[in-house]
Amino acid sequence: MTDQKSANPAPLGLSGFALTTLVLSCYNAGLITQGVSVVLGLAAFYGGLAQLVAGILEWKSGNTFGYTAFFTYGAFWEWYFLTAGGFIGGVTLQGIGLVLIAFGIFTLVMWFGTFKSNLGLFTTFLLLWITFFLLGLGAMMNNSGLTHAGGYVGILTAIAAWYTGLSTVVAESLGKSPPLGKPIMK
């Protein structure tokens, strides 16, 4: 019996996260004002299901950080799908704001876990916790300025996540190391 190489699940999880975040962030930033329901399918399947699968594969490979991050953010997108899709009733802006701030706190703690990782992952988590806090405060205070700011930072977050995930795919296909920058701490 030979050992078969397993694929790295991180590019899938990061790409599902990035694409879904980019589309929703364009709405949050106010760049697009109609058809936000297009995000629901992405939230359920690419942002949600693909990240859940990536999380399970990270668990199987023994990567606690990757498992915790992908599974949590996959669950976030499933929550978004159920909430924004109207499957859960009685949701208020303050409640949504509280959930977003709670995810911001989770992301801030996870960001500390990236200090010995590469610069791409460090930047993605830095921008993401800022995004969550801005969106959470925007929802709680019903402040469109904060929501728009969160949308713009969310666009930057998506770009950082996509770069981090896809640089691994491209580098692997070329037989090189991904250009992700040195760790912040040794």
Rank of each mutant, 00 (worst) to 15 (best):
G154R: 01
L42M: 12
A50T: 04
G120N: 02
L98N: 05
I105F: 12
G97H: 06
G154P: 04
L146T: 09
S144I: 14
I56W: 08
L57C: 03
M1W: 01
T131C: 13
Y67G: 11
N142M: 13
G66K: 07
L174N: 13
M110W: 06
M141E: 15
A84M: 15
T147I: 15
K60T: 11
C26V: 11
C26W: 09
M140S: 12
S37V: 14
V23L: 11
L98S: 14
M110V: 04
L134A: 12
G86E: 10
C26H: 01
Y80N: 08
T131P: 02
L128S: 04
F87N: 11
L100H: 02
S61R: 15
G90D: 07
S173H: 13
T147L: 12
F81N: 10
F122W: 11
L137N: 08
S144M: 13
I159N: 00
W59F: 14
L82V: 08
T68R: 02
A160Y: 02
G175N: 01
L137P: 03
K116R: 15
L12K: 06
A29S: 09
F115N: 09
T131Y: 03
Y67V: 03
T157A: 07
F106E: 01
W79T: 13
T21N: 06
F103W: 09
L42S: 01
I101T: 14
L156D: 05
N118C: 01
A171G: 09
L100E: 12
G150F: 03
L93K: 13
G151F: 07
A149Y: 11
A161D: 07
I32E: 03
F81M: 11
S25M: 08
L137I: 15
W79V: 11
L137S: 12
L174H: 10
A54C: 10
G35Y: 03
P11L: 10
L31W: 14
G48Y: 07
N8E: 11
P178I: 06
G151I: 01
T92K: 04
S167W: 10
M1S: 13
